[in-house]
């Protein structure tokens, strides 16, 4: 699975943020999402969705190697994290997130739930494994 975005299809509903937080943390709270929808209004009038590209920059800057590449997905190992926030500053997409309820930064786990529930098809799987037909 490779999460990809067509910004021009996004309607800004943030269903992705909601389903992401529920899938990853079991919490009904978009502030615990690992992707981010931003509107650009009143002009030019479109949305932008920032998602993890699994580029690995977070792992590269982590001073304690707490971010591991596993099956093509970079994962934060909370027990190894020292919360220095170097990865948050380094993420080129701004999608390494923090929240007062979490001891470590968190990121996309490539679970694919955002793709399954994106109503417009703005989020899609570039490998074609997840097909929604929308």
């Amino acid at each position: 699975m490779k999460l990809a975005v067509k910004d021009e299809l996004c309607s800004g509903c943030r269903t992705c943020e909601l389903v992401c937080a529920l899938a990853n943390f079991g919490e009904n709270n978009p502030k615990l999402a690992t992707l981010k929808v931003t509107g650009h209004f009143p002009a030019p009038g479109h949305y932008e969705v920032k998602v993890c590209t699994q580029c690995g920059e977070c792992a590269r800057v982590c001073p304690v190697n707490a971010i591991h590449l596993e099956d093509g997905v970079y994962r934060v190992h909370e027990d190894e994290c020292i919360a220095c926030m170097a990865c948050v500053a380094a993420c080129p997409e701004g999608v390494m997130f923090t929240h007062t309820s979490r001891s470590a930064p968190f990121k996309c786990t490539a679970c694919g739930e955002c793709i399954r529930y994106c109503p417009t098809g703005a989020l899609f799987d570039a490998t074609g494994e997840i097909v929604t037909g929308r």
Binding site: E8, S11, G12, C13, R14, T15, L18, G45, H46, Y47, P119, T120
Partner: peptide
């Protein structure tokens, strides 16, 4: 130019 939906809405009327 763009569909604009409210929070969690799959049928954006905007």
């Amino acid at each position: 130019i763009n569909d604009k939906g409210c929070f969690s809405c799959p049928i954006p009327c905007g």
